[in-house]
Nucleic acid binder design. Sequence first.
DNA 1: CGTGTTTGACCAGCGC
DNA 2: GCGCTGGTCAAACACG
Length: 305
Amino acid sequence: MEDKEGADPGTEFTSDSSWILAGEPDSVSDSVNYFLDRESNILSEFGWNLQPDHAEEIERFGELDRTDTRPDLAGNFSVSQSCGEVAGGAGGSGSGTGLNPGGAADVSTSNPSVSSSSSEDPPEKSTGSGGKPPEIPSKVRKKGQKRIRQPRFAFMTKSEVDHLEDGYRWRKYGQKAVKNSPFPRSYYRCTNSKCTVKKRVERSSEDPSIVITTYEGQHCHHSVGFPRGGLISHEAAFAGRLTPAVSQFYYPGVPLHSELAPSMTQSHQVPSDVRESHAVPEPTSQLPTDEGLLGDIVPPGMRNR
DNA sequence: CGTGTTTGACCAGCGC
DNA sequence: GCGCTGGTCAAACACG
């Protein structure tokens, strides 16, 4: 990992990843268009039904990856599985209403074999932590089986708030210190028992005001609204909050302004083994200053405690 | 009491 | 093979 310095080791995308950038490195605008275009597809794939407008508003999301080492998944990380048919159906068509937007949250899919880390596979782990005799150590992945990555994407948000509300309820299940970063990374999981969507939240070490949120998996249910707030329309939630907040595509694991940026402008290919595509127009330089936006947007009651 | 957070430990993957 | 790091679990705890 040493070699991955600038990049966050944790995020696997880093090291060798290359970003699929839209057009030329120089022409950001092209890239943007490309993204918008591509985004729709991407988002669609993730089950998001973004309206064009929204798509534009949202400056960009990066499709992180579709990694998975499993052949079956590889070609199609379709949406689905985790929540079963639900997602599947939804995925394609968008879940009907609009589940998608709901959140930015929803993203992707879950892996067929995984229904949350827990159901991923039967366990074999001797015992999870601590030696408890778990009957089903969910954390265990079959040996020999690589960790399956679900499609995911991340976006950067300039905000004081780490955990952005997106219409879904999340439960934090872990936090880890990030190498080369003074800020810890938090791991969240959708509270819906059938939903395997996870999300990672961390702050850019270079610019603390920027929050990097990575979604993994796809919701198979509608947004539930906020914990103590009422329901929020998906669009509202999405457009209202995320829009302003979301500013850039981001390459997971890569410090926003890091040295990697340049490279991304150069490589637009994705190594065959790297199934992640990161769209990144440019690092944070153009982030709208929406600091405080979230604060205004997110009603107190809706925030995480 | 239910729900969510904190935190230490464990495991897998990956690079050297 | 070893060591490092990310990712996850789950008990304990906190809060409404």
